[in-house]
Design a protein around this nucleic acid. Sequence first.
DNA 1: CATGAATGAGTTTTCATTCAT
DNA 2: TATGAATGAAAACTCATTCAT
Lengths: 206, 206, 206, 206
Amino acid sequence: MNIHSFVAMTPVQPARAHTPDPDKRTAILDAALDLFVERGYYGTAVPLVAERAGVGAGTIYRYFKSKEDLVNSLYRQVKQSLANFVLMGVKQDVPAREVFRQLWFRLAEFAQKYPKGFAFLELHHHGSYLDDESRAIEARILDLTRAFIMRLQVEKVVKPIAPMTLMIIVYWSFIGLTRCAQEGRIEITDEVLAQTEQCVWEAIRY
Amino acid sequence: MNIHSFVAMTPVQPARAHTPDPDKRTAILDAALDLFVERGYYGTAVPLVAERAGVGAGTIYRYFKSKEDLVNSLYRQVKQSLANFVLMGVKQDVPAREVFRQLWFRLAEFAQKYPKGFAFLELHHHGSYLDDESRAIEARILDLTRAFIMRLQVEKVVKPIAPMTLMIIVYWSFIGLTRCAQEGRIEITDEVLAQTEQCVWEAIRY
Amino acid sequence: MNIHSFVAMTPVQPARAHTPDPDKRTAILDAALDLFVERGYYGTAVPLVAERAGVGAGTIYRYFKSKEDLVNSLYRQVKQSLANFVLMGVKQDVPAREVFRQLWFRLAEFAQKYPKGFAFLELHHHGSYLDDESRAIEARILDLTRAFIMRLQVEKVVKPIAPMTLMIIVYWSFIGLTRCAQEGRIEITDEVLAQTEQCVWEAIRY
Amino acid sequence: MNIHSFVAMTPVQPARAHTPDPDKRTAILDAALDLFVERGYYGTAVPLVAERAGVGAGTIYRYFKSKEDLVNSLYRQVKQSLANFVLMGVKQDVPAREVFRQLWFRLAEFAQKYPKGFAFLELHHHGSYLDDESRAIEARILDLTRAFIMRLQVEKVVKPIAPMTLMIIVYWSFIGLTRCAQEGRIEITDEVLAQTEQCVWEAIRY
DNA sequence: CATGAATGAGTTTTCATTCAT
DNA sequence: TATGAATGAAAACTCATTCAT
């Protein structure tokens, strides 16, 4: 069970006429995810990805234009998966406090189910190789989230300051949590999760 | 004006008998800081650092044993500078709320004065090349901070939950802020800074 | 015609599954042998070996882990070939004097057929880069030779002194001969060979 | 007590107007001898020679044109010292057998007194860097030795074959002895020395 | 004169990408 | 179409030599 089995359910991957074997593409993405998280982008040799994926080195280049294209494709898929997973799991017809709680725990569920996927999104210094399309996806997700926050602001349940600021506090607190957990500094128990959720809510609530 | 002009005022750098030209050493560290932030550690070739520093490629190896030694020296200097800057600028004989405010704005002042230095500390997945000494410095700073939080907990001004959790919320919110500012997503005005400080305080206060 | 055409007939080279082109491996070994003899190990750059072998520089590293691995592989093959060639060509059911003569001329035949191979074995100060396996091969050959000498001593046909001493006189006299021939100081004719064989025999005979 | 204190007694070093400090020159040669024997020519960095000699790196280039010039100067001095030492210690008005014994033990005495000097002469693959002058010295010594052998041949005490051949047997047997001693394969006791002298004499005697 | 910091050409080695099979 | 052996450009690092002091 891997993130791409989830990814596969989403309409993210654009149909590329010349790549007739989606299983092989998925195998390559899975292998790349594992290795990028373990060893970093620059520390991962393409032939190694091929070997782990069980394909020839040249085959990778039938599915991806370059190593950079591979990492960008991966980034897009995982980012989109995260957004889908979180947003699709939230019932909106409940009080704002409850919606927030759901979002937080949905985020936690994703990070727990697909730790490598989440780690990949936040662990690296993506800046140097992300392309415009990847940045566009990020921007779209950001817009969705901003819209949601603004709705809460209209309802006067969260503070009337720049939505971006509120998002940063919530999301980066969560990232800090997972990062520290990865490095073994803390363990993310249900209790910790509940406590931090409460803290962060108090940070943003009206 | 660069972080090392600040670093130079602190007694951080261990005297290395065989490197008699501190200017050149500083020039190399400055160039490395710029480039590591721009392109990442693995994305930065040593000759490029040399060129930007205005020295020959071989010269780097007169001041640093290896590229890894260079990045670790840089990490230690900046990390220590940050700790010194923040802790030395805080008056302790004031209410806890005020101490927290001072810490936050001191952090912000550092990040504003030496944006690349702060970015460097948090932008990378340092894990793969930091050595024991660098980790020791990190641990020492962490301990200091934890001790401070526990004092606030005894005074019942912050929540009685794991100090690490509280630290994460505060510090990673700040990191998120600077990271987004770097990427041009927000601008860190005095107002934003005051608002976020207030939010984060509400997250951790008792 | 090169030493490796001989080597190829012997079961020396261990099967390396990941190197499916023995021709290319042989071409690299041949080029390395030429160059190491001409310019020494440290005087020979890897790309030069590649060029002479007619392959890319990177290709060398598909067949050998490192330059040191290359020189050790070469050393082992040549040393083993020499031992095989000499020992396999000697009939043992003849008088000791005759066995010695056969050994001497067999050695000479090898040195004449594969002058670079023989030169390589003795020309260098191998000490600094030979690994344990290479030394083990050397030790094994030494033991065989020592055993042979001790048999002659029991038969009272050679002097009853330390076998190592006798070996040194014989083998290093031969090495001196080939070295001087290489440097053009003498020419190794059949007559010279016969004369020296007689001299050396008189040195060690009882 | 080092070989160059001996060297100093010989008229070998040509007066070079621009090198006014023979002590410093000697210090450099001594350091180079030590290091070349320990680590080989290519394994020895010039600044290391300077450090061991207690001079600046640049100073070496006031006494020697280049690293190659340094190794050649060293080679010439040691080679000449060896020749002087051996030839000057031999009384000629005794029977040929006795002269040979004296030569052999004089050689041994040199190798024992100045092991590094002797090792340097024979340990390396000098071929790649020795210049014409060094080769000329070698040739001169060779001629002297050849003349001596031819006298013995006229007296019918050694075999009437090419003098070079006889020289090779004697000298390379001795080299083999010292080389094996260095590598720890044998120990050169007085007994071994006497035995080998006897063997080698029997090799060349009429 | 003597120095030793600085250099850049050269070293070994890696790896993203290609292309003959 | 899929492969993986081959490549060569580029990486980190070394060191003989120079030259400002």
